[in-house]
Computed example of a mutant assay.
Amino acid sequence: MTVQLYARDVGSGTPLVLLHAFPLSSAMWLAQREGLAPRFRVVTPDLRGFGGSVLGDDDPSIDAMADDVARLFRRLGLGRAVVGGLSMGGYVAMALCRRHPDLVLGLVLAATRAAADSATVRENRLRQASRLDGDGGTQVLVEEVLPNLVGPTTYRQRALVYGRVRGLVQATPPHAAAWAQRAMADRPESFDTLRGLGVPALVMIGDEDALATEEEARAMSEAIPNAELLVIPRAGHLCAVEQPDLFNQAIAEFAAALARTSR
């Protein structure tokens, strides 16, 4: 079946399409919709199975998720957009660049990696997917994924942020999370895509990220012909949620510069 993504669409101007992390939904982009909509058209879809989007019956695949986003572009009448992805959203954004490069005006990659999973990470994803399907609940995500989503500064000083992230994780549909884990486990590496990227890119990483590393972010920025790297202080994996003002400022400057040069 063809999946039609639910998306929040606010503001006007140069379009920004922001793709969310696992195991969250477009609700994670609240501060981006509020902070960036006065200057840009901010489109935040729920990837298939998450939030308001149905899962469908396709085999697990990051490429299928990218094709969903491409259909959303056509449905919303988007020509080209600055596409940003955080973590899993970054995998989808890179697949979009590979499969639908004509849609991408600029690329933002946050807290993600271009390498395929190691055997250990892949096995862990598949184990979690089996438990999600077997339990029919999100306990494995709360126990094993949630602790690495935010950095120590957020744990200590931003209790409301951590509580909100925990609530989003607990609201995740288990079968969608299992599907997404299998899709991520089978994704190919994306360095060839990045080396061939014909648009500017911004790579961001939190300096307290326990899941993606500054070394991996640097490897991506060095593979892309025209890229800048930004390390966000006092932020873990969900840098857009933990340090929204810094994240928004970086995206706004990047997108505004692209809009000027693409006129």
Results as ranks from 00 to 15, higher is better:
Ala115Leu: 01
Pro45Ala: 15
Phe50Thr: 10
Ala178Gly: 15
Ala115Asp: 13
Leu238Glu: 06
Leu168Gly: 04
Thr153Val: 03
Ala31Lys: 03
Leu149Pro: 05
Leu202Thr: 01
Arg99Glu: 12
Ala70Ile: 14
Pro45Met: 12
Glu34Asn: 08
Leu230Gln: 07
Ala257Asp: 15
Gly89Pro: 04
Thr112Gln: 02
Pro173Lys: 09
His237Met: 07
Ser130Leu: 11
Leu105Gly: 11
Met28Gln: 14
Leu96Gln: 10
Pro23Glu: 08
Glu215Pro: 00
Ala250Thr: 04
His237Ile: 02
Pro200His: 07
Arg8Val: 15
Leu36Ser: 03
Leu103Pro: 03
Val104Trp: 01
Asp63Ile: 00
Met220His: 07
Leu105Val: 02
Leu246Arg: 12
Met184Ser: 11
Val150Lys: 02
Leu194Pro: 02
Gln4Ala: 15
Ser61Ala: 10
Leu24Ser: 06
Phe50His: 15
Asp58Lys: 07
Asp186Trp: 05
Ala27Phe: 05
Asp57His: 13
Asn226Gly: 08
Leu246Asn: 02
Leu16Ile: 08
Asp9Met: 11
Arg122Asp: 10
Leu47Gln: 14
Phe50Glu: 10
Asp58Arg: 14
Leu168Ile: 09
Gln139His: 12
Val17Tyr: 09
Leu36Thr: 00
Ile224Asp: 02
Thr112Met: 01
His237Ser: 08
Arg125Pro: 01
Ser118Val: 03
Asn148Ile: 06
Arg260Ala: 15
Ser262Gln: 14
Arg131Lys: 13
Leu86Arg: 01
Val241Ile: 14
Leu16Pro: 01
Ser25Met: 03
Arg166Val: 07
Val165Leu: 06
Leu211Val: 13
Thr138Asn: 11
Pro45Thr: 12
Ala114Phe: 09
Leu19Ala: 13
Leu126Gly: 05
Ala227Asp: 09
Ser190Arg: 09
Met88His: 05
Leu103Val: 13
Thr112Trp: 02
Met184Asn: 11
Pro101Phe: 08
Arg156His: 11
